[in-house]
Write a protein that binds this DNA or RNA. Structure first.
Length: 712
DNA sequence: GACCTGCTGCGGACTG
């Protein structure tokens, strides 16, 4: 395939002294050079996807044509800065200018590009939105002669609001391109590609090039019981220290606070025993410059071992080189996330990836094992959840498009939105109803037959927060009387009388000053556990089913420490007498004197929906998601199931009143609150719950009961 | 029991 490349690009490949092109690169070169298809290039991290896209694109495009020829879109500024260096190096051979265009990029260089639009531009979705909304003429001047759009890390957009927005932005860019714009998405290996196809363009002209060769994954599981401790067990930290002190490792503890704890404590142990000082933490609350320093250290350092305790900030494709081992503390919520993390390890191409999972309770251990066994046995990765009717993104894009053209008729607006594939499942009469509602609420205004942004709309559109569709929480200062004790994100859970955990103590909120962003607290008198939860990660039903299978059968388990094996043995003992044959439907029920416990072994969303149905039916219960366990008063369980199923018939009014009473139910959506109520309810139902799944489960579930006389 | 992501255009002060 090398022969298909242009001479300057061949020279680049020769200078790089690569032994050969990677499979994904050869496949991509052929399809980019010899077809007009849109492409999805899917292969694991660090397999040369950027080059796979850019080598043939740069060979094929004539950069003497007017306007920007190639638009590269990335979900992260950090990734743009990272890729800029690589793309620039490639483009030097062709004398093609490369320009970064994001909020932190040089205004001078952006202005220079506007006066002489050429070459390659690296941009974020929000910067595209801002340009379209504020100065359509600029976007037209730059981007009306595009040949290629490259979307990096496209899996990070799939199934998200930001992805829907990006899909719409690509559509809007295509609108003023008369020629064909080809789109190439770069992706990690993911469960399904249908949505990726939707995003890049017409489904039938999109090809998927997939390099499935993965690295071997070597796992070990360890167990250190945490019990009621709020901090990690000392034995875990000591074991972890010994296992990582001479290697380059990433440690993922699932939470920012724990990441800090791990970094600080490992460093302390290292100081005591005269080990290396390279222990870092990397997450969103760590200052940006420090994060960049850590990334550069990891990438450029060859001599020293290091450990970075981090969150998902190090899951995406920023180049930090490769590490020897990845440590996961407790289970991830998704297999997709776990695989991304594991992919960071294995120094050379042919070397195995190494994962150590440290669990602090038996259910987390079981979930971690279930994720790995499912992936290894079936290659299972969660399919992407698809929202057919993203009414809130529709509303955002309606406002954006009116602002983009300053004024247009209602018919023109509806037409633009109707032909936009992002909203193809929203029928025109629903579009009209929403646009009419926007006029009634002064977000839009009809003047002389033309729609313009209304008085209330100006407040939303005329702020820089308008360009992104994801919700962010501002940080609030927390103080006792006048003494500040820290900062927490303000969310719907932050209410007067609510208990919060901060600076290792429990507090009760007595006042919230929204304008001053200040929360006043007093020490909490009751020892009640602070409620921080709400909607955490969602675990897929298949993982829970696999957990049940591992408990009930003598299925082979991956290698684990003696303590881990013992924890699993104990858990299996609890379930050994239930008669579970069909893992889809047979579920354990433990009946005690006063209470009974039912294990659904189902996904987070169905469990939440079951809980809502029990509430509607007036059934008192408690719920634990990790164990997928429900507690009821002892009684007739069949009657509970029947009542819950009947509750489904009267569900709608309960949902409507829940959304009306508690706007927090919609807190996942930045613009949802501006919709008519019925569409708000639809969004809540669609994104938060799975009532169909819950009903399906209730109608088929069988219980296997065991009666005990204790009441522990 | 979570984690993460991004941001215009203008006027005015200041620097070299």
């Amino acid at each position: 395939m090398y022969e298909l490349l242009s001479e300057p690009i061949r020279r680049y490949v020769r200078e790089k002294k690569w032994d050969s092109l990677r499979p994904i690169q050869s496949a991509s070169i052929q399809k980019v050079m010899q077809s007009e298809d849109n492409l999805i290039l899917a292969s694991r991290t660090a397999s040369g996807k950027t080059e796979a896209a850019f080598l043939p694109i740069l060979s094929r495009v004539n950069f003497n044509d007017p306007g920007v020829q190639v638009l590269y879109i990335s979900p992260l500024i950090a990734l743009i800065n990272d890729q800029f260096i690589r793309v620039q190096e490639l483009c030097e051979h062709l004398d093609v200018p490369v320009t970064k265009w994001h909020g932190e990029a040089s205004q001078t260089l952006k202005n220079k590009l506007v006066s002489d639009p050429r070459g390659v531009v690296l941009i974020t979705p929000e910067s595209i939105e801002a340009m379209l909304v504020n100065s359509e003429y600029k976007a037209k001047g730059l981007f009306s002669n595009l040949k290629f759009i490259v979307i990096d890390e496209i899996h990070a957009f799939l199934g998200t609001d930001r992805g829907k927005q990006l899909q719409s932005l690509i559509f809007r860019l295509r609108q003023f391109n008369t020629g064909n714009v080809r789109v190439i998405g770069l992706s990690a290996t993911i469960g399904s590609f249908e949505q990726a196809k939707e995003m890049v363009g017409p489904v039938d002209s999109t090809r998927i090039l997939r390099d499935t060769t993965g690295k071997e994954i070597e796992t070990e599981f360890k167990y250190f019981e945490q019990g009621n401790l709020t901090e990690l067990p000392l034995a875990l930290l000591k074991d972890l220290y010994l296992s990582v002190c001479n290697s380059k490792v990433l440690i993922f503890p699932n939470a920012r606070g724990t990441a800090e704890e791990v970094a600080v404590k490992l460093h302390k142990i290292s100081q005591k025993v005269g080990g290396h000082p390279y222990y870092f933490s990397h997450h969103s609350s760590v200052h940006k410059e420090l994060r960049e320093y850590i990334e550069a250290f990891a990438k450029n350092n060859v001599r020293y071992p290091f450990a970075i305790a981090c969150t998902s900030t190090l899951e995406l494709g920023i180049d930090i080189g490769s590490v020897d081992r990845v440590v996961q503390i407790n289970a991830t919520h998704s297999i997709a996330g776990l695989i991304q993390r594991i992919g960071r390890s294995g120094r050379r191409n042919d070397e195995t990836s190494k994962l150590s999972l440290y669990a602090t309770d038996p259910w987390n251990l079981l979930q971690g094992i279930a994720c790995i066994t499912l992936f290894k046995r079936e290659g299972f990765v969660e399919p992407i959840e698809y929202t057919e009717k993203p009414y809130d993104i529709f509303l955002h894009q309606a406002l954006a498009q009116v602002r983009q053209v300053s004024e247009c008729t209602q018919e023109e607006l509806i037409h633009k939105l109707s032909i936009n594939s992002s909203f193809k499942f929203i029928p025109p009469d629903e579009m009209k109803e929403i646009v009419t509602h926007l006029q009634q609420t002064d977000l839009l205004e009809l003047i002389g037959g033309k729609l313009i942004i209304g008085v209330e709309g100006e407040k939303i559109v005329n702020t820089k927060d308008f360009y992104s569709v994801f919700q962010t929480e501002p940080l609030f200062k927390v103080q006792v009387q006048d003494k500040p004790i820290g900062e927490i994100p303000y969310s719907y859970l932050t209410k007067v009388d609510q208990n919060i955990l901060l600076a290792a103590r429990i507090w009760k909120i007595i006042d919230i000053d929204i304008r001053a962003k200040r929360i006043t607290v007093i020490p909490a008198m009751d020892g009640k556990k602070p409620v921080f939860s709400g909607f955490g990660g969602e675990v897929h039903p298949k993982i829970r089913q696999e957990m049940l299978r591992l408990l009930i059968t003598d299925a082979e388990m991956p290698p684990m420490s003696e303590d881990a094996a013992e924890a699993i043995r104990q858990l299996k003992l609890e379930f050994e007498h239930y008669k579970i044959e069909d893992f889809e439907v047979d579920r354990p029920l433990r009946v005690q004197v006063k209470d009974m416990y039912w294990y659904s072994f189902h996904g987070t969303r169905v469990n939440g929906s079951l809980s809502f149905l029990f509430d509607v039916a007036g059934i008192t219960h408690e719920r634990w998601d990790l164990e997928s366990k429900f507690k009821f008063d002892a009684g007739d369980f069949e009657l509970i199931i029947q009542k819950a199923m009947k509750a489904y018939d009267v569900l709608e009014p309960y949902l409507v009143s829940a959304v009306e009473k508690d706007p927090a139910l919609l807190s996942f959506s930045k613009f949802g609150a501006y919709l008519p109520l019925k569409y708000q309810v639809h969004l809540v139902r669609d994104k938060r719950f799975d009532f169909a799944g819950a009903m399906d489960f209730l109608s088929t579930a069988h219980t296997s009961s065991i009666h005990t006389h204790t009441n522990s």
